[in-house]
């Protein structure tokens, strides 16, 4: 029988401190760094997550959410402005 998936996710405003990664119970180990992401941000493998929520209160920017309670939210607790700089940088040489 397939195991149920978890419901927690990390939004894109993660600052990559890794406090949640080591909070995730060892055997579960559902949190990982997104490969190739310059900002080194973390994500949750929902198929491994057991919805224990231990990671949530340890996040300094409130970027871990319970999809059941909050749905998919626009990240607001963490760093939200880097996109604007990235968009500017992408366009800076087009003028």
């Amino acid at each position: 029988m397939a195991r149920k998936s978890g419901h927690f996710y990390i939004d894109e405003t993660c600052i990559a401190c890794g406090a949640c990664d080591h909070a995730c119970p060892g055997k579960v180990d559902a949190i990982y760094r997104v490969e190739g992401d310059f900002l080194g941000r973390l994500a949750i493998r929902i198929e491994d997550c057991i919805d224990c929520a231990i990671c949530v209160p340890l996040c300094p920017v409130d970027c871990i959410h319970d999809g059941r309670a909050e749905g998919v939210v626009e990240g607001a607790g963490g760093y939200t402005k880097i996109k604007a700089l990235q968009a500017w940088a992408d366009n800076r040489n087009k003028d």
């Binding site: 401190c17 890794g18 406090a19 949640c20 990664d21 080591h22 909070a23 209160p57 340890l58 996040c59 300094p60």
Partner: peptide
């Protein structure tokens, strides 16, 4: 800080 233990482990690992 409530995350000081996990941050320590993260620091040592990285």
């Amino acid at each position: 800080a409530d995350n000081v233990e996990t941050l320590y482990e993260e620091a040592v690992a990285r």
